[in-house]
Amino acid sequence: MSSHAAVTSGPPEAHHWDPQTAYSGAKLGMWLFLATEILLFGVLFTCFALYRWAFPAEFHEASGHLKISAGAINTAVLIFSSYLVALGVGAAQRGDNEKVKKMTLISVVCGLLFLVIKSYEYFGKFSEGLFPATHGADWVLYFPALVLGVFLLIAAALTAFAFAAFHYHEYSKFYKYLGGAIVVMVLFPFLVSPLADLLSSIIGSVATLPEHTHYAWRGDGLTQSYKMYFGLYYAMTGLHALHVILGMGILFWVYLLARRNRFSSEYFTPMEIGGLYWHLVDLIWIYLFPLLYLID
């Protein structure tokens, strides 16, 4: 990479930053990134607001299908993990690597729990027909959704390993892990043959007329605005779930750094920016929950 092969430790980019600037620069960078994330979700919030205003009765009725208890448990899980991450930041600033390890790992588990509860909710909706399905066979939806989740998690973990290796300038390991993550993601469509036609239509330029690839909703009695509600519900919570997975990857990377006793009172940037990211994931859910589940 850069000429400074001699620099084997220390934060990345340190060759032209003094530590204080590196710290504040990384934080500014993360805040800017969080701003872009909020704008990303902002589009979906805008759409939701517009159509809720257009179809208030249908949206109200459709939201009644959601399990408030599941949403509430998930809210608690995320807030609790955010609290742990905040403790982790404090621990990193004191150089307490043991505590950082504990806090990040439990938070990753919380993220996992969140995803499990979320998939349980999704599958409930699928079986009610509140999803555009291909052939009506439920397993066609359950199976790929589960497998996709697992693949994404593995890829996120491998990427975290890759970043940790990169951090220590261990480039051969970096390429190995990154290659692994890419292979996992590329293998996914091949391993899941029932998904092949769905994926080829999503990924490929081989798409036929989209009308033919629109999936039918099984609930015959559903009005269109019902579908709009659930379409937006899946778009918003799905995008959020992707962010949860990404956040878990970041926290796992922080965990790997802590395992090497990387943090001290002089250097704790990764924990702090990883924590910022996790708080955002939490915050978005705190807006999604009342919007989708609670508002009458």
Partner: peptide, 26 residues
């Protein structure tokens, strides 16, 4: 980010037809 998400929504529309941009679907 705004146009990025908009294009993603367009893809969702193309394949799942949830109707956000489709006058036929409200």
């Amino acid at each position: 980010p705004v146009v990025g998400m908009t294009l993603v929504l367009l893809l969702v529309e193309r394949y799942f037809g949830i109707g956000v941009f489709d006058p036929k679907l409200g």
